[in-house]
Design a protein around this nucleic acid. Structure first.
Lengths: 129, 129
DNA sequence: TTTTATGTTCTACACATGTAGTTATAAGCT
DNA sequence: AGCTTATAACTACATGTGTAGAACATAAAA
């Protein structure tokens, strides 16, 4: 898969959250948040289709219903890896450090991370034993 | 500060790691890893100078010695925030989840993360008490 | 001192991306 | 059936980025 741009990812989120959508559907959601032309949104959808991230599912009248054709988890993982490579030269630990220096993280967020971590270490421990 | 591209970041890393460098110095390091023309590298340096990320420190002969003019920590933090915004819609917890799903993380990495976390929680606890 | 090599500057170009106008077309209303 | 409007399809354009050649200048070598 080719990589997705910021705007393309933004659009994919709607499909991942809500399932099948039309051009006007997506336009509506984005126009709620900021000023954008319908054709701009439609261009992004067209490009996503070209990249194989969306496919035409069906249509009613002249309106096309699109559906996500790539998975959320693997897409995010790919982007994360690419990010770590470019910003931290592939060193995950540098990401950890930067992440933990972020003052915008709440105690709650930290607790959440801890719980994930404990779980993961447990699983991994089991498996490698 | 304008944002830095992948290539620009790659170059900044050398300055952050090694201090002052000349065009040929940087070229050498990158050419070690992949095929690139000297002028390509020099263009990136020029753009970094234009963006205020590098400044001319001194020169000997026709050769210019550059020095980093932006900080590593804050730059990475900015990039991290931007990344979380675009890929995870600003939700750090989604990053945590994706991160912890990465099978390429070793038990050691996880231990490292845990130690950072414990430290951070301790500090924050103190402060907010 | 003439030649050669090396570094800087300037210019260029293809591709990705965000942005949107124009044109065509088909639905739906009157 | 004709008019209006919503949607799709196509085209366009500025900017950022990776890429590098060409022209120029000067240090180093012969």
């Amino acid at each position: 898969m080719q990589e997705l741009s910021t705007f393309e990812l933004e659009v994919m989120h709607f499909f991942w959250e809500e399932g099948d959508l039309t051009g006007p559907d997506v336009y509506q959601r984005i126009a709620d948040q900021r000023d954008v032309a319908y054709t701009t949104v439609k261009t992004i959808i067209d490009r996503l289709e070209g990249k194989g991230a969306l496919k035409r599912h069906r249509s009613y009248g002249r309106t096309i219903v699109y559906r996500a054709a790539i998975q959320r988890g693997s897409t995010k993982m790919r982007h994360l890896r690419r990010f770590i490579d470019s910003v931290f030269r592939g060193d995950s630990r540098e990401l950890f450090t930067t992440l933990l220096h972020d003052d915008q993280l709440s105690l709650d967020d930290l607790g959440y991370l801890e719980s994930l971590l404990v779980q993961k270490r447990h699983d991994k421990d089991e498996k490698e034993r």
